[in-house]
Every structure is written in C-alpha cells, then in structure tokens.
Nucleic acid binder design. Sequence first.
DNA 1: ATGAATTTGTGAAGAAGGTAACAGATTGCG
DNA 2: CGCAATCTGTTACCTTCTTCACAAATTCAT
Lengths: 226, 226
Amino acid sequence: MEDQKIPQVTAKRLPLYYRYLEKLHAIGKKRVSSAQLSEALQIDPATIRRDFSYLGELGKKGYGYNVNYLLQFLRDFLRQDEVTNVVLVGVGNLGTALLRYNFYRSHNTKIVAGFDNDPAKIGTEVDGIPVLSMDRFKEVAELHNVEVVILTVPASVAQATADQIVEAGIRGILNFTPARLNVPPNVRIHHIDLTTELQTLIYFLKKFPVDEESETAREMDEAHKN
Amino acid sequence: MEDQKIPQVTAKRLPLYYRYLEKLHAIGKKRVSSAQLSEALQIDPATIRRDFSYLGELGKKGYGYNVNYLLQFLRDFLRQDEVTNVVLVGVGNLGTALLRYNFYRSHNTKIVAGFDNDPAKIGTEVDGIPVLSMDRFKEVAELHNVEVVILTVPASVAQATADQIVEAGIRGILNFTPARLNVPPNVRIHHIDLTTELQTLIYFLKKFPVDEESETAREMDEAHKN
DNA sequence: ATGAATTTGTGAAGAAGGTAACAGATTGCG
DNA sequence: CGCAATCTGTTACCTTCTTCACAAATTCAT
Ligand SMILES: NC(=O)c1ccc[n+]([C@@H]2O[C@H](COP(=O)([O-])OP(=O)(O)OC[C@H]3O[C@@H](n4cnc5c(N)ncnc54)[C@H](O)[C@@H]3O)[C@@H](O)[C@H]2O)c1
Ligand SMILES: NC(=O)c1ccc[n+]([C@@H]2O[C@H](COP(=O)([O-])OP(=O)(O)OC[C@H]3O[C@@H](n4cnc5c(N)ncnc54)[C@H](O)[C@@H]3O)[C@@H](O)[C@H]2O)c1
C-alpha cells in the first residue's frame, strides 16, 4: 500500500510495456520515445507518457526513455524478479494447453501443479508438471506458497471448486469458466471469457460492416485494444 | 449502422445477459428483475437497466423483465439465429483446445476448419474439424463465407500470418498472440492476452495484499469484472 | 556556441462509463 | 377496490480514462 495508487488500466498496460522493452533491449536498442512505443504497441503516446508519469519521471525531455533504465525500473516495479508459483485446476482441453505454455521462461510465473478429479488423469504429467488429485490441493498449495489459481474446470462445478480453493487460502483466481463466481471480498477474480470475446467481435462485424470509406467501426473499436 | 450506437462495454455485456437468460428460460423462469440479474452476474442493477435501456424499453415498471421476450429480443439483436462460420489459424496447444470446444452448440459459431503449416498436422482432423494447409486458406474462407479468424500461431509469425489472412478478405481477428498486429483500418482486432491477464492479477495481489479489514483492493479491482 | 528539432511531463478539457436516487408505472395483497 | 410494495427508465452526478496542447528541458547539427 506504500505505492501511490496507479489506475487500473495503467496496471494492465505495464506488462505490455515491459514485454516490448525486453524486446528492444534484446536487439540492443538504447533509447526509445513515446512515439516509437506508440507505433509498436498501438497506444496513444500521451497515454504512454501519462502511464509512466505515475511511476515517476522516467524519461528525459528531448531524448525519450533509456531502455535499460526503464526496463529495470519496470522489472522492479512489477516484481518480475520474484518467481510466482501458481497452480491450475481442471486439466482438460484448455487446462492442458495452458500447462504446456511456458509462462516461466517469459514471465517468471511457474505452474507447479495441475489438479483434476478424473482418476485417469491423476498421477500423470503434462510437460513435467504433475497432475494431482484435488485431495492434495491444500497441502501442495501451502507447500509452494501458491496464492493464485488458474481455473479451467467445467462451468457446472466452477462455484464448488472455487469454494474449495478459497477455503484452502487462495487469494486470486484467473477464471476461464463462464460462471460468475461468488467469493469473499478478499479474493480477487479476473474473468477471461473467450466465448464472449468471440461473440463481441462477431457482433461488431455484423452490426457495423465497414465500408472502406468509413472509419467509424475502427473508432468504435479502439477501446478493445487493451 | 441503422442502430444507434451503444457503448462498447454494453456490447460486451450483452452476451452475458443473453447466456444467463437462456439459463433462466431453460429452468422455466418467466420474469426477472435487474436486482436478480445483478445478483447472478455481479453487475450493478442500475448498470443492467441502463444497458437494456439502450435497446429500448424492454421491461415493465413494478414487474421487471419478461424472460422470453428479453431473450428473444437479445437473440435478434445479437443475431444469434444466424450461424457464423470462423476458422482458426495455428493448430498448436491453444488452437487445438479451442477447436475441441463446442462454440457451435452454445453460440451458433462454427469453426469450419483449422489451418497450419506443419506438414504433420495438415490432413488430420480435430474433433471432426479438418486441419488444412495455409495454401487453401483463401479458397476455404471464401467457400464458407468466413470473415473472422481465431489466431493462435507463434508470435514470431503473427504479423506475416495476419497479412496473409487480411489479404484473403478476413475482417475480424481474435488475436491470442502477444504481437500487436498492424492491419488496415477496416479490419477489426480483439486482443486476448492471457499472459498479461495473469501478470496483472499477480501484480495486484503482490501490490495490494488484502487484510481482512480493508476493502481497498476489492474496490480497486471492480473494474476487472467485465 | 547558437538555434532548430525533439520529446517529456502535465494542466485542462473531454469522453466514457458507473451509480445514487427518484418519479412514475405496475403489481398484487388484503 | 385501495394501497403498500415493487421495479423500471432516466436524470444528475461522479469517477475513471484518454487526449490535446504546450512550456520546459535537452539534444543535435552546424
Ligand atoms: N476449451 C476452450 O476452448 C474453452 C473456450 C471457452 C471457455 N472454456 C471454458 O473453460 C473451461 C474448461 O474447458 P475445457 O474445454 O478445458 O473443458 P474439459 O472438459 O476439457 O476440461 C475440464 C477438466 O476439469 C476436470 N474436472 C471436472 N470436474 C472437476 C472438479 N470438480 N475438480 C477438478 N477438476 C474437475 C475434468 O476432469 C476435465 O479434465 C470450461 O468452463 C469452459 O466453459 C473453454
Ligand atoms: N498455449 C497457451 O497457453 C498460450 C498462453 C498465452 C499465449 N499464447 C500464445 O498463443 C499462441 C499459440 O500458442 P501455442 O502454445 O498454441 O503454440 P504452439 O507452438 O503449440 O502452436 C502454434 C501452431 O502454429 C503453427 N504455425 C507456425 N507457423 C505457422 C504459420 N506460418 N502458419 C500457420 N500455422 C503456423 C504451428 O505449426 C503450431 O501448430 C502463441 O502466440 C502464444 O504466445 C499461448
């Protein structure tokens, strides 16, 4: 709480900046302007400068931002040096895909285990990550200091599963199910609703068919470029 | 364009309402109030009423909303009766999971084909959906009137692939890669950045550890409940 | 060294979204 | 029927986010 509050949206964009700065660093670029960042990330340069200004005066007038400095600053700010352990519950189609994705290499986030209630899956491994019975959830979560769960169970059991993992002390849930979970106020939930995203995209296309002339549709859509 | 503009956020919530109304309809519920919807969807009742008011006067004072009527209205408005054909490009971990998911049953959206450039995958099927060579993209997309692509290729080839599919006449892209795609203004892109979502969730947990006393963190987070 | 060119940080205005609150319409109980 | 209870639609306000526009600082070319 020692940090002064930064806007929600800014917090969501910081990882984007971080990721791109890593790329710039990798190719040896030493400086970058908000205009160049804007070009690459498709975010208004004023927005970018404002975002950074919440963190301090990170740039220099007439020069721009020093890539190394900014990268290091964001690394610290985002605690990118600390490894975060998470677990995934529901090793089905989507869960397996997520287990196979290497969040660790790119983001210092480690999925230490998957959980499922299907006896056929329990005891197996996905890319070296063990799939365990839900019985062992609390034990394993505590052992690895896990506070965040990726939830990919069927919607029908989402609430019951959420109750169970909250009970075990989990404080954050990345919810891929369409269910709206009811949890205590001290537990944070982020919803990712793939179906709705697809539907919304289709809705806009059907509703506002773009003729080459008009830019309206694109303007309408800018806000979606999170 | 005949429809008066409705706010972005409202458009994103409509499928949510629609989905829940289907559930209500299925269990035979005849009427529902904004307060009840609020309870189930965790959206402020005033927001719900405002959302519906953009579409017309759909409710009745002292009564609430007629489930069947509202459901039918939203079905029409969202064009849920028309089947939308889409294709998926990049049949890897994530792509395969999405192919296996039945968008059709739940949302009248049909993935008619997957595309990949891996010879080992071309010619196979995933749950009855054929995996084809990119060479056939334009032909197949035109045959099935496809305007929307789900993009799940590696980030490194995302831009090149986007160019290729835009060239073939695609007008909407659901982009799962972390790449920020550059496309003509008449093509719509929605980004779904799973990694950033996870990072942002973790960021908030680390930055604002919730003590039972304080609600600050939850307040800060409300906006994420999309 | 000088002055033109850059580029930041931010004040101010605007756009977009959320919500309290209430008039007015309707329901449904007694 | 009469009246309390219910519940919408919307006005008014508030908060959050975006963007314009510009002074101030710095760089860079000559
Ligand atoms: N797959 C997709 O592309 C996709 C798209 C949109 C939404 N979703 C949502 O993501 C969720 C998962 O989808 P999926 O396709 O991977 O489903 P899935 O059925 O393939 O996987 C669900 C997994 O959860 C396990 N499970 C069931 N009950 C459990 C319990 N009580 N405790 C622990 N594990 C349990 C099952 O054994 C299975 O392995 C669903 O809610 C779905 O609506 C998936
Ligand atoms: N899997 C995840 O959980 C996850 C999480 C976050 C982000 N992503 C992103 O989603 C994308 C896909 O991830 P993945 O794990 O499924 O990767 P993957 O490597 O498993 O799948 C990529 C697929 O694309 C195919 N491909 C490669 N080049 C192609 C081309 N030029 N044309 C057509 N197909 C081509 C490959 O053959 C492969 O089948 C990546 O951009 C990744 O960053 C994935």
